[in-house]
């Protein structure tokens, strides 16, 4: 079962592996994932790549008991909105923590993990998940 466009995934490796987003020099807004154009400044926006520090805080979270295909063997797991210390808010999985440690306000740091596999013969997706520190 190949679900993903391999070239599309490949273009996103640096974003997924290293938390590489972008920054609008005009309105000073950070974006992750990176934007093609600044939605605020439009044609006046000047975007440049920006690698965000892999530290953040849980803004809110949910425990997933019925995961989508590809994540169904991982249940139950936590998904959180994470406010990066020097960047925007993103959504990601929280790993290696009992659920009583997954709290609003908890400090988290990124870890490199397998996100999902395109079946037994497809590509393996890697990227960042987060653990409570």
């Amino acid at each position: 079962m190949h679900r993903t466009s391999v070239p599309l995934l490949w273009r996103r490796f640096k974003h997924h592996y290293r938390l590489l987003g972008n920054h609008c020099k005009t309105c000073k807004t950070d974006y992750y994932p990176p934007r093609e154009i600044c939605p605020t400044c439009r044609r006046k926006g000047v975007l440049e790549e920006k690698e965000f520090e892999k530290k953040g805080t849980i803004q809110t979270y949910s425990i997933i008991y019925a995961g989508p295909v590809g994540f169904d063997k991982q249940t139950p797991y936590a998904v959180a909105l994470i406010k990066l210390d020097n960047g925007p808010v993103l959504v990601s999985q929280i790993v290696d923590a009992p659920f009583d440690q997954v709290k609003i306000g908890a400090k988290v740091t990124a870890v490199f993990r397998k996100i999902y596999e395109d079946g037994k013969e497809g590509i393996i997706h890697y990227g960042l998940k987060w653990k409570v520190v």
């Binding site: 991982q74 490199f112 993990r113 890697y126």
Partner: peptide
């Protein structure tokens, strides 16, 4: 290993 860990991670 965790379910999301392998030799690469």
């Amino acid at each position: 290993p965790g379910i999301d860990e392998d030799t690469a991670t």
